[in-house]
Nucleic acid binder design. Structure first.
Lengths: 112, 112
DNA sequence: CTACTTGTTCTATAATCGACGAACATCGAA
DNA sequence: TTCGATGTTCGTCGATTATAGAACAAGTAG
């Protein structure tokens, strides 16, 4: 039987939990990728980290209610969880509007 | 001479830094209070924590670029920093629209 | 000057976190 | 069944964090 990974119920999502999950650069880049590409195989993220570390970050995002996991054979597909938008409408979009410039600066997309 | 507390320049503010600073329930409640009441004396926050801990949290918020300190005699007044709105327009409002219910749930203000 | 007030910094501690390798589990293929 | 591929979990390590008390600094009042 395929093991089911635990997903929190919408009522268990917390604002501080979501913010904390997004406060890590690696996790934020993962969410950014998901927002741009939709569902991704969990090996499609070009993070230069160990597999176990990636799995850890995906677990944090999952337990915060931000992403959901779908198993297909041995592969694992990750996507943004629609329930997040219900619990915190427009929150994720409000955050992803800003992007890192790599040297510690951020910029509003509208400012070019 | 009155000691000046260090404030980061807007270019030094990071999105993950801001999110991380807001991911703590104590700090989020402080920011919420500042957004509602404007400038507050740093002893006006009804947090049930030690003075040194409050000072620590205010420092984290300050180094993230979220709040600014103004000294007046021995008193210290804290307020939201306008530069944050310039660096990340509407980000803070987008986050504060949701509030904790105390039992781990959050709710959009518009949903009653 | 000596208190007293306010707030920061220092030191310590317990908890959490990010990272990794190793072990484990699951599935598909040979 | 045995193997290989894909992910998760476990154990560990070092770094960071939240907390609070103690010491310190700066200003005010007496």
């Amino acid at each position: 039987m395929m093991k089911q990974l635990q997903h929190p119920r919408p009522r268990e999502m917390t604002l501080t939990g979501v913010l904390g999950a997004l406060s890590d650069p690696v996790r934020l880049s993962i969410v950014r990728e998901l927002a741009g590409s939709g569902e991704c195989g969990s090996s499609a993220f070009d993070c230069d980290i160990a597999n176990s570390t990636l799995s850890h970050h995906l677990k944090v995002l999952r337990l915060a209610g931000i992403v959901q996991h779908r198993k297909e054979g041995t592969r694992c597909f990750v996507s943004l969880r629609p329930d997040l938008e219900i619990a915190f409408p427009e929150l994720l979009a409000s955050i992803l509007r800003f992007h890192d410039t790599g040297d510690g600066n951020q910029r509003d997309r509208r400012l070019g």
